[in-house]
Design a protein around this nucleic acid. Structure first.
Length: 596
RNA sequence: GGCCUCGUAGUUCAAUGGAUAGAAUAGAAGUUUCCUAAACUUUAGAUACAGGUUCGAUUCCUGUCGAGGCUACCA
C-alpha cells in the first residue's frame, strides 16, 4: 500500500470515528503541500464542514491528532485555516526510497492485456514535412511510449495520404516543368523535389486564374476552369481508372517522397509498426454504409445520397455517401477504422490529428458507436493546436512554413555552436561530438514542442531559436550528465559500491525528502499522462525533478561529507534521480547523455 | 450568422473549485580551491472586461470585447 493510500484510508476512518460519517477513501483527495508550508501532503477540510459540524480549523486539528496516533507513517501535522498539512516520518521516506531503488520494474507497469493503436504523422505525399508535423510526430511517438509504460501493447500506425487532387497537382506540374529531374540529378531530397512542383503548380495556376479574371470571368468560375486545375482533375480521374502512365509517374514520385520521409523520420527518432495507404483504403467503408442503412443508423434521401442523422446527439446531418454512390472522406475513415480492428483486434484507438478536425472526429466516433463497433468506446482523438509563428499562421502557399528538415538542421547547428563555445567537447571524437549535438539539438526541439499542453495552440519563434537554459530539454540532459559525472567519480573512489548497499543516515535533510517525494510520484505522472495522453505532464515533472536536484547539489556536499552513511545515501539518491530522468525522457523520445 | 477552442508577468508556458496565482526567459544584484557555471542565490513584475453561483473562482454559469478553428456531395 502506498503512503497516499494509507493516508486516505486513515482519513476515511477518521471521518467515521470522529464525525460518524462514512466516506470511501477513493472519494477523498490529497494534494502535495505547497512549498511555503511545512508538511508533505495536504488535506482540505472546507468541503466537509457540514459533515463535521464544526469549523474546518477545529476538525482539521482533531483529524490531525487522530492521524498521528492511528496512522503509523504520520509524524506530525499543522493546521492553517482549513488546510491540514501532514508530515511523514523520515523513516518512511527512507523505506520508500529503498523500495524505489530495488524496484526493477520502476517506471514500467505490467501488461494490462489491452491493445491500442496510435495513429500519427499521416503526411501528404505532395510536400515535405513542416513544423506542424513535428508536433504531431513527437506527440504520437511520445504517447505511444507512455502507453507502453502503462502496460498497453501499442501499435504505431501511419496512414499515408498518397492519393488525391493535391498529389495530382505536383504530378501535373512535374509533367510540364520537370524535364526528367530526379532527386539524384537535382540534389534535392525526394519530398522537397515533389514539394517544389506543388509550389510551381500553385504559382502557374494563380497566374492562369488572374488571366481569366482579367477577361471578366468571375473568381469562382476562373478557379474551376483554369487549364491546370482541369488537367489535375483529369489526372485524378485517370489515376482512378488505372491509367498506366499516370500510375507510373505517381509511383515514381511517391517513391521519391517516401525516401525523403524515411530520412526525416529517422532523424526525428520516430518509428511505425504499420503503414496504411489511402490508395488502398479510399474505397473502404461502403459496406458499413449498407450495414448502417439496415440498422437504421443512416437514411437515404430522394436523390440516393446517404446521410447519418446525428441531431439527437446535438450534431447535424452528415453525408456518408454521395448520390452517385461514391464515398466521401468520412466513409473512408469508417472503413479504415474497421480495417484496423480486423488487422489487430485493438481495444482502443488514438488518432493524433490537429484540432481543425475536431468536428470530423466527433462525428466519426459517434457514427462508429451507433454502428455498435466493438472498439467504439475506445476511440480517442488526441487533438492538438496549431504551431504559430510570430509572423502569424504558417501557409505553405505563401512560403511561410518552417520546413522540418531545415529546422532540425538549424537546431543541430545551434547546439554545435553553443557546445563548442562552452568548450564542452574536449576529449570527444568527431563522431561523439556529432552524436552529442544531435542529442542536444533534438532534445531541445522535442522538449520545446512537448512541454505545452497539446490542445493549446503554441507559438514558435525560429529567430530566437530554442533556448538551452531554463525549462528546456538540455537543462534536464545537463542535470543527467552531471549526475553521471558524480557517479563516475564515485566509482573511481569505490563509493559506488557503498552506495549500492547504503545504510540509512541518522537524519535526512529537507531537500532529500523533497527529492524522494518527487521520485515517489513519478509513476503517478506516467499514469496520469497515459489517461490524458499528455507528455506535457511528464515534461513538467522532469523539469521539477531536475531543478530540485540542482538545488540539492548546490546546497549539500557529496564528496566532502565525513559521515559515510550520509555520503553513500546521497550518491544512491543521485543515481536514482538519474534513473528517473533517463526513464522519463525516454517517454518523450529524448535521449540523455552521460557527458556534456 | 451558427458551433467549437482559447484570452494569465514584457515574452513563452503552469495551476483535479483551495492557502500569499507558480515557473522559465528577458531586466536588476550576487555566487566558481567538492563532483560539470548549459548551474545556483536574491529582486521586481500578471488572471481581457462586467455580472452571477459559494466558505473560496484563473477554473463553473451569463453577457461584452479580442484571437483562432470548423461550418464542401474537398481530402
Amino acid at each position: 500500500m502506498t503512503i497516499q493510500e494509507q493516508l486516505l484510508k486513515g482519513i476515511s476512518k477518521a471521518f467515521e470515528t470522529l464525525f460518524d460519517h462514512k466516506i470511501d477513501p477513493s472519494d477523498l483527495a490529497l494534494q502535495p503541500t505547497r512549498k511555503e508550508f511545512t508538511g508533505h501532503y495536504t488535506f482540505v477540510l472546507f468541503p466537509y464542514s457540514r459533515i463535521t459540524k464544526s469549523s474546518p480549523e477545529q476538525s482539521a486539528r482533531r483529524m490531525g491528532e487522530y492521524l498521528v496516533s492511528e496512522v503509523e507513517p504520520v509524524g506530525g501535522y499543522n493546521v492553517v485555516k482549513g488546510f491540514l498539512n501532514i508530515s511523514i516520518k523520515d523513516q518512511y521516506w527512507l523505506d520508500i526510497f529503498r523500495s524505489l531503488v530495488q524496484n526493477g520494474q520502476y517506471g514500467q507497469f505490467p501488461p494490462n492485456g489491452q491493445k491500442v493503436m496510435v495513429e500519427y504523422s499521416s503526411p501528404n505525399t505532395n510536400k515535405p514535412l513542416h513544423l506542424g508535423h513535428l508536433r504531431n510526430n513527437f506527440l504520437g511517438f511520445s504517447v505511444s511510449e507512455i502507453l507502453k509504460a502503462n502496460g498497453y501493447e501499442v501499435i504505431r500506425a501511419n496512414l499515408v495520404n498518397d492519393r488525391g487532387i493535391h498529389i495530382c497537382k505536383s504530378m501535373v506540374a512535374y509533367k510540364h516543368f520537370g524535364n526528367g529531374e530526379t532527386p539524384e540529378s537535382s540534389g534535392l531530397k525526394g519530398d522537397h523535389l515533389a514539394g517544389k512542383y506543388y509550389v510551381l503548380f500553385d504559382t502557374h495556376y494563380k497566374k492562369q486564374v488572374a488571366e481569366l479574371m482579367e477577361k471578366g470571368i468571375p473568381g469562382d468560375q476562373a478557379k474551376k476552369s483554369a487549364p491546370l486545375m482541369k488537367e489535375a482533375q483529369e489526372m485524378l480521374f485517370q489515376w482512378e481508372n488505372g491509367d498506366e502512365e499516370v500510375i507510373g509517374l505517381w509511383k515514381t514520385m511517391n517513391a521519391w517522397v517516401y525516401e525523403g520521409f524515411d530520412a526525416t523520420y529517422e532523424r526525428m527518432g520516430v518509428a511505425f509498426d504499420k503503414f496504411y495507404y489511402e490508395s488502398d483504403t479510399y474505397l473502404l467503408g461502403k459496406d458499413l454504409v449498407e450495414e448502417g442503412l439496415q440498422k437504421g443508423v443512416f437514411f437515404k434521401k430522394e436523390d440516393g445520397s446517404v446521410w447519418a442523422d446525428l441531431q439527437d446527439e446535438g450534431l447535424d446531418e452528415k453525408l456518408v455517401l454521395r448520390a452517385d454512390g461514391t464515398s466521401v472522406y468520412i466513409t473512408q475513415d469508417m472503413g479504415t477504422a474497421d480495417l484496423k480492428y480486423r488487422d489487430f483486434r485493438i481495444d482502443q484507438s488514438v488518432y493524433v490529428v490537429g484540432n481543425e478536425q475536431d468536428y470530423h472526429f466527433e462525428v466519426l466516433f459517434k457514427i462508429l458507436k451507433k454502428l455498435g463497433r466493438p472498439y467504439g468506446e475506445g476511440l480517442y482523438h488526441l487533438s492538438y493546436g496549431m504551431v504559430d509563428l510570430p509572423s502569424g499562421k504558417m501557409k505553405s502557399r505563401e512560403g511561410t512554413v518552417v520546413d522540418a528538415d531545415d529546422l532540425i538542421q538549424e537546431m543541430l547547428d545551434t547546439a554545435a555552436a553553443h557546445t563548442e563555445a562552452l568548450g564542452k567537447i574536449e576529449g570527444f571524437s568527431e563522431e561523439q561530438a556529432h552524436e552529442l549535438y544531435e542529442m542536444i539539438g533534438m532534445g531541445a526541439l522535442k522538449y520545446f514542442l512537448l512541454k505545452v499542453d497539446p490542445k493549446k495552440r503554441m507559438l514558435f519563434d525560429p529567430q530566437e531559436s530554442i533556448e538551452f537554459q531554463g525549462n528546456t530539454g538540455p537543462f534536464i540532459q545537463y542535470t543527467h550528465a552531471r549526475i553521471s559525472s558524480i557517479l563516475r567519480r564515485a566509482e573511481q573512489t569505490g563509493l559506488l559500491l557503498a552506495a549500492e548497499r547504503f545504510e540509512n543516515p541518522s537524519a535526512i535533510m529537507d531537500t532529500e525528502t523533497q527529492l524522494i517525494f518527487l521520485l515517489n510520484t513519478y509513476e503517478d505522472k506516467i499514469q496520469l499522462a497515459g489517461e490524458e495522453h499528455s507528455p506535457a505532464v511528464i515534461a513538467q515533472f522532469l523539469f521539477d525533478l531536475a531543478k530540485e536536484y540542482n538545488r540539492f547539489y548546490a546546497e549539500l556536499p557529496i564528496f566532502n561529507e565525513t559521515n559515510g552513511n550520509a555520503q553513500a545515501f546521497r550518491i544512491a539518491l543521485s543515481a536514482q534521480v538519474a534513473r528517473t530522468l533517463r526513464s522519463g525522457m525516454k517517454l518523450l523520445g529524448i535521449t540523455v547523455p552521460e557527458k556534456m
